[in-house]
Simulated assay, not measured.
Amino acid sequence: MRVYVPVTSSILQRLAEQGVLGPAPITAFAVTPGLREWYVDDDLEELEYAASSEAARACLRLLSADDEASRRRIVIAADIAEDRVEVRDELDRGVVAVQVPISLSDCASIHADDDDAEEAVDTAVRNIDAADLGDPEAEFLVDEADGFELSWYATQELSLVLEDMS
């Protein structure tokens, strides 16, 4: 099953050093029944993009707790055995709990903001809580960050991604 794991540059650095994300359970996003129902589209590619977008938004919450991290959203796409993934749609659409550590060899790709998104992401990080509580102005500021597309990187480019963020 393809899962999309929101991470910060600090977490990505640990993946580079240790070769594994963990400990489990790891919150991620995937094409779940709740996401399918909300998105109302049968195109798997579109559904996976929606799951990845949910993970990118979750990065904002992680960044609000990580002052050391680069102000960029990062999502890791990983392939995990379906029996190791627990669907948690009751928490939010597309949420899953990966019940095992995720090794670098499980990772299919890395998706990250370019440096031109940093200001919008920083603003979104400062406003994510208010947006979650329904503040329309804060939601607008968070949506500004969502307007930046994440760039795609092969896992072999992990060190380059980290270097670009330092």
Rank of each mutant, 00 (worst) to 15 (best):
Met1Trp: 08
Arg2Lys: 15
Val3Tyr: 11
Tyr4Glu: 07
Tyr4Thr: 03
Tyr4Ile: 04
Val5His: 01
Val5Pro: 04
Val7His: 08
Thr8Asn: 10
Thr8Gln: 12
Thr8Lys: 03
Gln13Ile: 03
Arg14Cys: 02
Leu15Ala: 03
Gly19Val: 12
Gly19Pro: 05
Leu21Thr: 01
Leu21Met: 10
Thr27Ile: 10
Phe29His: 15
Val31Thr: 14
Pro33Lys: 10
Glu37Cys: 01
Val40Pro: 00
Glu45Ser: 13
Glu48Trp: 08
Glu54Asn: 12
Ala55Lys: 06
Ala56Cys: 06
Ala58Cys: 05
Ala58Gly: 04
Leu63Cys: 09
Leu63Tyr: 11
Ala65Ile: 02
Ala69Gln: 02
Ser70Pro: 00
Arg73Pro: 06
Arg73Gln: 09
Val75Pro: 06
Val75Trp: 09
Ala78His: 04
Ile80Phe: 12
Ile80Arg: 13
Ala81Gly: 06
Glu82Trp: 04
Val85Gly: 11
Val85Gln: 13
Asp89Met: 14
Leu91Cys: 01
Arg93Asn: 06
Val96Phe: 08
Val100Gln: 09
Ile102Gly: 01
Ser103Glu: 14
Leu104Asn: 03
Ser105Lys: 12
Asp106Ala: 14
Asp106Gln: 08
Cys107Thr: 15
Ala108Cys: 04
Ala108Asn: 07
Ala112Glu: 04
Asp113Met: 04
Asp115Val: 08
Asp116Phe: 07
Ala117Pro: 01
Ala117Thr: 01
Glu119Thr: 13
Glu119Ser: 13
Val121Phe: 06
Val121Gly: 08
Thr123Ala: 10
Thr123Arg: 12
Val125Tyr: 09
Arg126Lys: 12
Asp129Gln: 07
Ala131Gln: 02
Asp135Met: 06
Pro136Trp: 14
Phe140Thr: 14
Phe140Gln: 15
Val142Met: 10
Asp143Val: 00
Asp143Cys: 03
Glu144Lys: 13
Phe148Pro: 00
Glu149Pro: 00
Trp152Tyr: 13
Thr155Gly: 00
Glu157Val: 00
Glu157Cys: 01
Glu157Tyr: 02
Leu158Lys: 10
Leu160Lys: 06
Leu160Tyr: 03
Val161Leu: 13
Glu163Thr: 07
Asp164Glu: 14
Ser166Tyr: 08
